[in-house]
Design a protein around this nucleic acid. Sequence first.
DNA 1: CGCCCCTGACTTTTT
DNA 2: GTCAGGGGCG
Length: 1086
Amino acid sequence: MEFIADLHIHSHLSRATARNLDLEHLYLWAQLKGITVVGTGDFTHPEWLSEIRTKLEPAEPGLFKLKDEIADKVAEEVHPSCRTEVRFLLSVEISSIYKRGGRVRKVHNVVYAPDLETAEKINSRLDRIGNIHSDGRPILGLDSRDLLEIVLEASEDAFLIPAHIWTPWFSALGSKSGFDSLEECFGDLTGHIFAAETGLSSDPAMNWRVSGLDGITLVSNSDAHSPAKLGREANLFDTGLSYFDIKDALKTGDPTRFLGTIEFFPAEGKYHFDGHRKCGVRLSPAETRQCNGICPVCGKHVTVGVMYRVEELADRREGEGPLRRHPFTSLLPLTDILSECLRVGPQSKKVQRHYHQLLRDLGPEFDILRKMSAERITHAGSPLVCEAIKRMRNQDVHIAPGYDGEFGKIRLFDDDERDKFTNQQSLFQIPRSRKKTSLRKVEKEPSRPAKAGKHAPPAPIPKDKNPGVPASSMLNLNPLQEEAVLHTGGPFLIMAGPGTGKTRTITERIARLLSHGIARPDQVLAVTFTNKAAEEMEKRLDLRVANQDILKHVTIRTFHGLCLDIMHQEAEALKTEDIFGILGDVDRRRLIKSLVPGGCDAQEVSDAISAAKQFLFLPEDNWEKIITGIPHNLFAGIYRGYQEALRENLVFDFDDLILQVVRLLESSEPIRKKYQERFSFISVDEYQDINHAQYRLIRALAPADKDLCVIGDPNQAIYGFRGSDVRYFHAFKKDYPEVKSICLTQNYRSTETILKASTQVIGRTNTNGPLWSGIHGDQRITISELPTEKAEAELVVKTIETEVGGISHFSMDSRKIDTGAGTKERGFSDFAVMFRINGQGKVIEEAFERSGIPYQRIGKERLADRKGISDILYCLRMLEALPGGMGNNGLFNSKQVDWGKSELERLKARLEGLSVEEKIEHILKEVDCLRDLSKEEAFKKDVDQLLSFSKSFGRRVPAFLAHLALQSETDLHDPRAEKVTLMTLHAAKGLEFPVIFICGCEEGLIPYQHNHDEAADDCEERRLFYVGLTRAGEKIFLSRVKKRLLFGKTLTPSPSRFLKDIDQDLKEHETPFSGKKRRDMQLKLF
DNA sequence: CGCCCCTGACTTTTT
DNA sequence: GTCAGGGGCG
């Protein structure tokens, strides 16, 4: 018999599916659509399986039917014209996320079982591998090949079909995380793959161009996430009604039994073309190639769609194909056609009403779309609908292709064409009946046009998040930002809370100074704390200032970078050599250790030296007041010895850079004047974080009447332990009495919920005006309580899997229902996991390792200090005879490198005149231990980083070394990497993510209590938590555990006090892993 | 000289 | 509970 089958659907137990996606509704909708065989979906889910057991009973071999008593009830709801038999077939989609060949693969496969026993067998195997209890489409760290093996082992009649093979994110051949061929994906078991699902965004003709798929039966299914989407695509069979006949038809591809497929128009699919939905960029494959796959708006890689990917793997031209082809028909869903005719949304009541009227009068949807005569359709519907269907059957459809998760837009008529049909007569001849249909209450037709909500464009993205678009004018600034930008002529203080467009404001301001000719480029100085902030500023300024020459003369530096420059310029006045080294952390520790007597805490001494220097005290000065905890005579000796060692080795430490310059500027009026005149326009970022030395530096450079603009947020002062003092920020008004100040309060990053919660946390110490964003999203932030930190880590991983995996490519049903921030498509880079101390990171990292989710951990170890890298640098210094290379006291010797004098001379001669990069490559080959190390992945990565960093320095080894010393790990955070970021709360400052996790929200950890006798610094810890919360744009997940193993001790911490400060109605408490009870599904049809 | 074992440390860390 | 580094022993 001839029948239609839809073999890939989901139940209500899958993520992002309709609540009414139960067997009754599947039965109902299969009939409305005209489908005979439907997959059950989700058979791995225990709850769904038991639903299957209770509601279905075996029918023909391998098929199931709804039990009569249930079917009878549902039958009343089916239009008599549509009533028919429906069979179910056990199916499930598995999401496999795993690493292969060094890449993360995400592949979806549909598995079919001939009977419940086989399903059970598969389930029990998968249960051991991962969690199949919480998602109808389980996400497993299981290789597709291994999944196939499990399936085949369970029963020789079970089979597997790779799902929607072209979708970018989750498929066997997908561009993002798939393979280049089925062979690559399934390896030795590829022979067991006899069918593949083409997915919504491709049709068989596209697939024919890939010869690797010859002999594979191309099937099409709906992948429905709601009953009404059933049969969006489907298969035509002409076989006996049984599982085995269906399987055999697919396996053999016998064209008399597998008749082909019913398709979407591929352009209507969500991933047909390429682009960025967020940026509003839609690209054809050719256009994508033209811009090298980079989004012209945001500069990130575009989401490459199905068309592009097919062309990439195609070895035949368009129109060509294999001998064995199955026919296919492209159809539009009837609701889409009606939507087009009625000019209202497909979900609208109006469309729904007409839809059911047509079905009632004419029979199942597929009958209407595929073969019904024009007369009948016109009679029951209207000439317009009939014409629409005619055009569809003739493939006369205009579609703006879908891209990056956005469905294509169909157009069947021009406006005047439509008018031609509608003006003749009312659209439907059927009276707007109040006739009782048993299906639904017919509501009065709304007189207003299509509901705005569903089709309204998303809220405009704040310009700030669109750094690629140069602001054409200052109209993009809010009034306060504009005021800040316009201010010139005197000291200016900007309080800028999180997400208020701080960097934008500061760069706009500089851009204006330059473009209005108020300042010469060389007069402009911008000081930041981090290289990253400096780079960011430079990047943004670059977009605003057309002339590269101008930008070149602007000084944008970190505090240390600026001082390093000045030290080089003023080497003579400083009585130092022109070339000197910078003492890295590792060498500093080693040096101090060699100086302190036993039993003395080297770290404490190191901190003390740092503190002394930050207050500009050298050994001979009166540092006594600020040094506590170390006997002063002892400290004096160590400090003196330390400074001597630095001088002998011609190196300065980080603190010296500032100290030397401040002392120079303060002691020499001519030099001070010179720099004061040079830098007439100064901006300082993150002013709340300056320490005493940095404060004095700014004071020296900027006298009271200077055009000095400082910007910062006292709420985010989190570096007190390192000498930063927010009091300098507050003292600014006293220091610069002429000061004007403003406070930016519009936040462009976070939802109101997040702003409210973080404001409550910062509480009475809040120094800012009330932040607002007008961004509405989740009403609550989630707080989870877990038994152990391992469970906590697993929850983080699982939540990310859900957020990424549950939604990505077929969320359309739910996306239209769940508006707002709830169901965004997310990539891994949208997430950050934060914690208070690095020690927490390990467990979390391990959980990520297990899951295969790509992540990057921002650690504290700088590139220059890593194993092997420090040795390379040591070699470089030796070769160049640079400071820090040859320790007079053996301090800075590399343990690994042992070059004799003659060997050194020989190498020197050989490497003469080479670039830094080439020298490094030679060193790698010359040194035994480095050669050995080169086998290690981690070292290879480090070397790659080092080499790429070295490129811009040409032959300038000293500059390379100096700048490398001033690099930090945070500078290496790559927001473009499709990875979850793991880091401490401190490291998160200045970053933003749509979704954040903060782990360990427990007393003792947040706020952190170092030891029992010392109370935690409540205020600074509060600010730290505030910084963490305000990183988030849309969602916050906080977690705490009841039992935590920390430093070998088991703690049973109570919840963080900061959690209590968040209003109850902003919090949602969850106790995961306890099997949330779902509401019983009722048969409420519409 | 090299290896192994023991011992202590184990916040946050823009440069 | 883990890991690095120092000291001691072979």
